[in-house]
Amino acid sequence: MIETYLIALLIFMIVGSIIAIETKNLLSSVISCGIVGAAVSIAFLMLAAPDIAITQVVVEILVLVILIRATIVIDNTAIEAHWDTFAVVSSLIFFGLFLVFAFLAVQDLPRFGHPLMRVSQQYLETGLQKTGAANIVASVVLDFRAYDTLGEATVIFVSILGAFVILRRRGRKRRTEADVEKVGILSEEEIREHNGDIRE
């Protein structure tokens, strides 16, 4: 039964992604991407993964807000397709081959509903006694596999650092006083420093 629902949901996702890819208007494209994310969240809920469903739905909202607020408000012009025949044809051929081989490879995976659980069975059996956490996912994330979480924290730290470095104000062309006022989040010292630059 659940398989039927999931197939319907996946077809819905594929239609949403086609709209997101092919529509001319960027705003509708971003919103269709959000629809795909919401459907993925519902699928997680049906697959008995409430932790991920919560995270997915909130993250998807943030993705939408970031994309609209940071990029769409700047430039919403639809880009006329310079139809790059070589890229489209070669990628279509590649994806045809990819899907054929994927269809063959999928036959060897464990059947849907019957996973291989050699390690995970151990986690399910001993997780509560070893860590005392009732949520086995939390015990896996923060106790059995805490190294992964440390790596995740590092990755998000580095990505935020990278974004700040890319968008930084220092080291770029000199600002005038009016620009400094416009940004608005400079501290007093920075404004004084900028003014000093201008006076020089």
């Binding site: 697959l47 995270t55 993250v59 896996v140 995740e152 998000i156």
Partner: peptide
């Protein structure tokens, strides 16, 4: 259900946002 993929995907989603 298997808790291990859920734990890995949980971190993967937030990394995707970053």
């Amino acid at each position: 259900v298997d808790p291990l993929p859920q734990a890995l995907v949980l971190t993967s989603i937030v990394i995707g946002l970053g």
